[in-house]
C-alpha cells in the first residue's frame, strides 16, 4: 500500500478526517438536538467508511440502525427530558489529561500492528480462509457473512439475539411498569396497577 497511493486509501483518509471533525463538533456542541443530528451524520459517514472497508453488510446495518433507529430513540428521549445542556461548571483539565494519556498509550501500542491493508497480516491466515474455502467447496450461500452469521457461528448470533431480547424487555419494564419512584403522576394505560 505504501508508495502506491490508491483511490481507496484516499477516499478512506478523507472520510476518516471528516469523522474526526464531526467528533470534535459533538464534543463542543451544547444543544442536545444538535448533538443528536451530528451523531446521525457521524453514523452516515461511518457507514460510507464501512463500504470502503468492504464491510457491506455492516454498512447497511449501521446506516439503518445508527442513523435511523437510534436517532429516533434519542429524539424521543430529548422530547421527554429537554434539549439544553447546562454550561459546564467543572474543569475539563483532568478528563483531557486522562484521555490524552490513554490515547498516547494506545498510539504507542498501535505502531507495532501490521500496516493497513496488506494481505499477509496474521488476521488473514487462520480462521477466515477456512470459512471462505469451506463455503466455496460446499456451495454455501455466496454471501459469506450470512453463512458465518447464521451457520458457522449460529451460537454467537443466538447469544446476540438474546441480548437484544433482554434489552427490549428491560426497556419495557422501565418505561411501561406501573410503579414510579417519588412520582405523583400515573399513566392512563397502567391505571389499576399496584402503587409503590
Amino acid at each position: 500500500m505504501i508508495g502506491t497511493p490508491s483511490a481507496e486509501a484516499f477516499v478512506m483518509a478523507v472520510l476518516l478526517t471528516l469523522l474526526a471533525a464531526v467528533t470534535i463538533a459533538i464534543a463542543r456542541q451544547r444543544n442536545m438536538f444538535g448533538v443528536v443530528i451530528l451523531a446521525s451524520i457521524y453514523s452516515f459517514l461511518m457507514a460510507s467508511l464501512m463500504i470502503v472497508l468492504d464491510a457491506v453488510d455492516v454498512a447497511m446495518t449501521e446506516a439503518s440502525v445508527g442513523a435511523g433507529i437510534s436517532t429516533v430513540i434519542l429524539l424521543t428521549t430529548l422530547y421527554l427530558t429537554g434539549s439544553m445542556e447546562y454550561p459546564q461548571r467543572r474543569s475539563v483539565a483532568i478528563p483531557l489529561f486522562v484521555s490524552i494519556v490513554v490515547g498516547a498509550a494506545l498510539v504507542w501500542g498501535t505502531i507495532g500492528l501490521p500496516a493497513f491493508g496488506i494481505s499477509d497480516a496474521p488476521i488473514h491466515q487462520h480462521v477466515a480462509p477456512t470459512y471462505i474455502d469451506f463455503s466455496r467447496k460446499h456451495d454455501m450461500p455466496p454471501n459469506i457473512v450470512t453463512a458465518v452469521l447464521a451457520d458457522f457461528r449460529g451460537f454467537d448470533t443466538l447469544g446476540e439475539t438474546t441480548v437484544v431480547f433482554t434489552a427490549g424487555i428491560g426497556v419495557l419494564l422501565l418505561l411501561q411498569g406501573g410503579w414510579r419512584i417519588g412520582g405523583s403522576r400515573r399513566d392512563e394505560e397502567t391505571e389499576g396497577d399496584d402503587e409503590i
Binding site: L74, E160, A167
Partner: peptide, 27 residues
Amino acid sequence: NPLPHVLMLTAIVVGVATLSLGLALVV
C-alpha cells in the same frame, strides 16, 4: 476477512438495544 464483519454486525444491533436501555434509565 468476513469474520470481523459478522461480529460487528451483531454488535451494532446490540449497541442500539443497550443505548435504548440507557436512555430508558435516563427518562
